[in-house]
Every structure is written in structure tokens, then in C-alpha cells.
Design a protein around this nucleic acid. Structure first.
Lengths: 202, 202
DNA sequence: ACCTCAATGTAGGCAACGCCAACAATGATG
DNA sequence: CATCATTGTTGGCGTTGCCTACATTGAGGT
């Protein structure tokens, strides 16, 4: 059937980006469960099969969304690290923690997506790289601190993991509504302090 | 239309339990995405609308699944606490950590479900109670340690949170395939030690 | 013993979804 | 200017969650 002419041109221009943007909006406002390719297509003003040209799967779109999330998170962490160049280690770590938790508070649904265990084999490689890159800020901070003797010696990966797990745990609890966001942010300084100085009395 | 007689009785007996059991099996074997009420009904040998009599929603079934998960986790934690009655604090905490991480390794999909942010308002109360109960083992351990002076003073909730977040972070990373399970379990002792003694050199 | 009725299971239908195949419009490349 | 890969459209298929109407059952009151 020949097409009835409309105001919109046949080709969208940058449908992929538009879909991702719209998807992130729905994700933020209505949650991941409300994400449907068809609804997304309607919201973007294209036919229900158009998204299939840019994402082979629904999961492929979710993966792309997660990847974009990692990139934003990575930017936030890098900025936080750059903003406290010569501060002492505890302040530096606190800044990183604040950046990470801030991201978790602002994008809880996205965070859930980013750490979900179901990814296309295609995307998993790029996603793993993105995770490493995000962890990079933390790793570098710890490596430098270890060189300066501000941190216990030992396998740097393990030391970093202790901090990373603690922060990620907070973020996950916030994203899962098991922990009040403001309360967690307010107690962050104490949290990092306890992490660095230990739970045992000195 | 009158019913053609079959070997199976009209009433199942305990359909609700059978559905939950079947659901948990599918969850473990094929993931949460593969859970469908209709498929579940087929597997249990009832009609596609029968589950609706016991779970008003698909989400209601997921919530029931999560609740059962919390009960199992709680048992594991309680048992771990009971198994190390007079051990010193670090050993006690390590035992709790091992129990929690063990659960995460064995039931990653279930853990994801338990900490998902979408729950029916009906279930959320019971779920919150279950979370508190699971946290109870940790809280009690810390409270006792604080009384004995084995732990820094200060808001006990905050001190507990540092440990809880750290463990939950590890569990979440394992469940999300961002961390190798065996590696994490192997390094658990060191992890707990660092948590207690801090990352700064003494 | 019978009747009633709430609980539980069944049958069918509806709208929405993801995915697929066939076709149409477009713009870049020769 | 013809060709053709890219990108969008239409229509269809099978599945799903949920709803309504109906059937079967067992328990409790008379």
C-alpha cells in the first residue's frame, strides 16, 4: 500500500539516539517493567517494527541503555576524582563515594539495569569494559594511596574490592529502597571514615 | 461444556505451594525472565487461570517467592550465628558473611528478585519485616560486640550498616556476575579482616 | 440427608507484546 | 541515472497477563 504523505519525513534521522533517549525517560519515570519496544516506537512516532532496525532484541536496547549509564557514571566519577586533586585520601574517597551514591539516588532503575545478570553475549564484552573503566577511578585512587603508604599493603585489587563492595552495597540498598537515600548520603562521611579506620577500636 | 474425567482430581490439594516450588525451580534454571504464569500452570498441570486464584498478580507470585527467599536466608544466617556461639567476634562475623555469600552464590536470581525495587504495596510490609529479620542476626552480633567493647562505639545502626553494605555489595556483585564467586569466597576472611581493622595502616 | 455457598479450578476472550517476513521509500555510490 | 544497501512500514504469528463467566468440589448449617 502506498504511503499517505505526512509531515514527518520517511527517514527519522537518528532514530537510534531518539529511542535511547525516550527509553531512558520511561525507565526513569515508569520503571524498567514499563519499557516496551512498541510503546517506545509510538512515543517516537515510528512504526512498531522500526526499533528492530537498530536493536536486534529488546535486551539489546537494555544493554545499550546500561552502557550509556556506565558512561555517565564514569564521567561523574572521573569528575569527582578531578575535583579533589590534592586533597587527602579520605576526602578523595569520600568524594568518589558521594558521586557514586548520587548517581544511584538519581538513577536507581538504571543502576538496577546496569548490574542485572542478563546481557546479550554481544554486549557483555563492552559492558565488562565499561565496568572496569568505572572501577578505574577507584583503582587508581587506591593504587596512589598505597604508593604513598596511606593504605595497608597487600593485593591492591582486594583492598579496592573492600571499598568498592561497600559503596556498591550502599548503592544497591538505596536503589532497592531498602535504605533511605538522604540518610545514607548524610552518613557517608562517617561511613567512609569507618571503612578506612576499621570497626575495631584502636 | 462438561468436563472429560481425568485421573487428576478437580482440586489440586495445595496448588499454591506447588506453584511456588515449580516457580523457584524455573527461576533457578532459566532465570526470572522465563517465569510465566501460564507456563507455570502447564508445568503444574492446571489451567492457565488457576494461578490467579492464589496470586492476584504475577508480581504477587514474585513477592511470595522473594519472601520465601528471605525466610531461607534468615535460617541460614541464624544457623551460622548459632554455630559459632563462643567464637571471637571476627570469626563470628566471618561465619555470617560466609553464610550470606553462600546464599548469594547458590541463589543469584532469587537474590536479585529479593532486592528488586518493584513490589506490590501489599507485600512490601511483610518483605520489609523479612529484611529486618535477616538483618537481625547481624545487628545482634554487633550489639553484643559493642557491649563487650570489641567494636567502636557510636550509633550501632551505622556501624552495622557499614558491614551490611559491604557484604551486600559483595553478594550483589556476585549475583550480577561482576565478581567471580569462588574468588570472593576464598578472599572472604581477608575481606572481613580489612573491614574490622580498616584500610589505613595502624 | 440435603441445601447452600464459598473456595477453587476451567474455558474463552481481549489487548499488548516481541519477533519475523515481505514490501516501500530513501539517499549514497557507481 | 541506475543500483542497491539502509531504514522504515505493514501485517501476521504465537505468547503472555488479566478478565469474566461458568463448573466442580467440599464444608457447614438445617
Amino acid at each position: 500500500m502506498p504511503r499517505i504523505p505526512t509531515s514527518r519525513p520517511y527517514h527519522h534521522g537518528d532514530l537510534r539516539a531518539a529511542l535511547l533517549q525516550s527509553a531512558e525517560r520511561t525507565l526513569r519515570e515508569k520503571g524498567a517493567a514499563a519499557l516496551s519496544l512498541r510503546e517506545l516506537a509510538r512515543a517516537t512516532g515510528v512504526s512498531h517494527a522500526a526499533p528492530g532496525r537498530h536493536f536486534k532484541d529488546k535486551q539489546a536496547l537494555l544493554d545499550a541503555l546500561a552502557l550509556a549509564g556506565y558512561e555517565r557514571l564514569n564521567q561523574a566519577l572521573t569528575a569527582a576524582a578531578a575535583d579533589t586533586p590534592e586533597a587527602d585520601f579520605e576526602q578523595r574517597l569520600t568524594a568518589l563515594a558521594r558521586a557514586y551514591l548520587g548517581f544511584a539516588v538519581e538513577n536507581p532503575e538504571l543502576l538496577e539495569l546496569m548490574f542485572a545478570r542478563k546481557h546479550e553475549p554481544d554486549s557483555s564484552g563492552r559492558l565488562a569494559a565499561a565496568v572496569d573503566q568505572s572501577l578505574g577511578s577507584l583503582t587508581r585512587t587506591f593504587a596512589r594511596a598505597q604508593e604513598r603508604g596511606e593504605i595497608v599493603q597487600g593485593d591492591p585489587e582486594r583492598v579496592t574490592l573492600v571499598a568498592a563492595a561497600s559503596l556498591h552495597g550502599l548503592a544497591a540498598l538505596i536503589a532497592g529502597c531498602a535504605l533511605d537515600a538522604e540518610e545514607a548520603m548524610a552518613g557517608l562521611d562517617t561511613h567512609v571514615h569507618l571503612l578506612l579506620h576499621g570497626l575495631k577500636p584502636r
